[in-house]
Simulated scan of single mutants.
Amino acid sequence: MQIDWTTFALEIVNFLALLWILKRFLYRPVLDVLARRRAEVERVRAEGEAAKAQAQALRQQYEARLADWEKEKAGLRAAFDAELAAERERQLKALQKSLADERARQAAQESHRQAELQGALEARAIRQAATFAARLLQRLADPALETRLLDLLIEDLAQLPAAQREGLRLAAREASEANAPARVVSAHALSEDSRKRLAAALAERLGTPLPLAFAEDGSLIAGLRIVIGPWQIKADLADELAFFAAGAEGPSAHGG
C-alpha cells in the first residue's frame, strides 16, 4: 500500500486544527465550568462547615443556657424550700403564741371568775357576819354603851385630821351664820348632861357654838351621828357594821 504523504500531512494538519478548536472552544469552557463547579462546591462546603460550626456553637450555647437554667431552677427551688420552711416556722410560732395567749386568756378568765367567786363568798360571809353582829349588838346595846360611844366621839374630835377639822369649822360657821342647827341623831335619847358635854366639845373643837337639834333613830343600834352641812361625824354601831360590810361613804368625819 502506497502512502500519500500530502494527504497524510493534511490529515495531521486537520487533526491539529481540530485539537486546537476543541481545546479553544470545548475543552477550555468545560474546564472553566468544572472550575466554577468546583469553586461552587467548595463554597457550599465552606458554608456547610460554617453552618455546622455555627450549629455546634448554638448547641454549646443552648447546653450552657440549659445548665444555667438548671442551676437557677435549683437555686430557686432551694430558696423556695427555705422560704417555705421559714414561713412554716413562723406560722408554727404564731400558732404557739396564739395557743399560749388563749391559755393565758382562759387562765385569766378562770382567775377572774375564781376571784369573783371568792369575792362573792367573802361578801356573803361579811354580810352574814354583819347580820349576826347586828343582832348581837342589838341585844347588848343600852344607854351605858351609848354614853361610852359619846365619850369616844368626843375624844376622836380632838384627833381629826387638819383638813377635816377645817372643813367642819367652815361648815359650822356657815350653819351658825344661817342659824341652822346641827342635827344630832342617837339610838337612844341623850341625857341632859350628855347633851351639854357634846355641845361644849363641839364649840371647843369647831371654834363656834352651834345650836343642836336632837332626834332618835333606833336603826343606829347604839351611838350617834352629827350632821353639820355636808359633813357627818359618826360614832354608831350601825355605821360601823355598814363600814365593815361595804366600806366608807361620802365626805364624813368618822369617829369611834
Rank of each mutant, 00 (worst) to 15 (best):
A79C: 02
L117N: 06
E116V: 11
S219H: 02
E89K: 08
R148L: 11
I3Y: 10
H112W: 07
A123S: 13
A108F: 04
G207T: 05
L31S: 09
D81T: 11
R195D: 03
F132M: 08
D236I: 03
L140M: 11
H254C: 09
I3G: 03
L224C: 05
F8G: 02
F25M: 08
L31V: 12
L84C: 02
D193W: 06
S252L: 13
Q54R: 10
R169H: 08
T7A: 14
A123L: 12
L16G: 12
L31M: 12
A94V: 14
E216T: 15
L190V: 04
N179Y: 08
P181F: 10
A50W: 08
L92I: 00
A235T: 02
L10V: 09
G207C: 01
I21M: 09
P181N: 14
K93G: 05
A9T: 14
D151L: 11
E122S: 13
K52L: 09
G207Y: 00
W20Y: 12
A141G: 07
A82T: 14
Q61M: 06
L190M: 14
L137Y: 10
E83N: 13
R195C: 14
A108V: 08
Y62D: 07
D193M: 04
Q118A: 15
L140C: 02
L76Q: 14
E110N: 08
L117H: 08
A50H: 06
A246F: 13
A242M: 00
L157S: 06
S191L: 12
L220S: 05
L136I: 00
R148A: 12
L206Q: 01
G207S: 02
D193P: 04
A215Y: 02
N179F: 08
L212G: 06
W20K: 05
A55I: 09
A246I: 06
L168W: 05
L210H: 10
E102F: 05
P181C: 15
A57N: 02
G218Y: 00
G255W: 01
L140Q: 12
L220N: 04
E63V: 02
L206A: 04
V185E: 10
A9D: 14
G256E: 09
E192G: 09
V33H: 08
R197T: 11
Y62C: 06
I21E: 09
A199Y: 04
R124T: 13
A46Q: 07
T7R: 15
W20C: 10
R103F: 02
A67F: 00
L152T: 05
E216M: 01
P209Y: 05
E40V: 00
A107Q: 14
L145N: 07
T6K: 12
L206S: 05
E83K: 15
P181G: 14
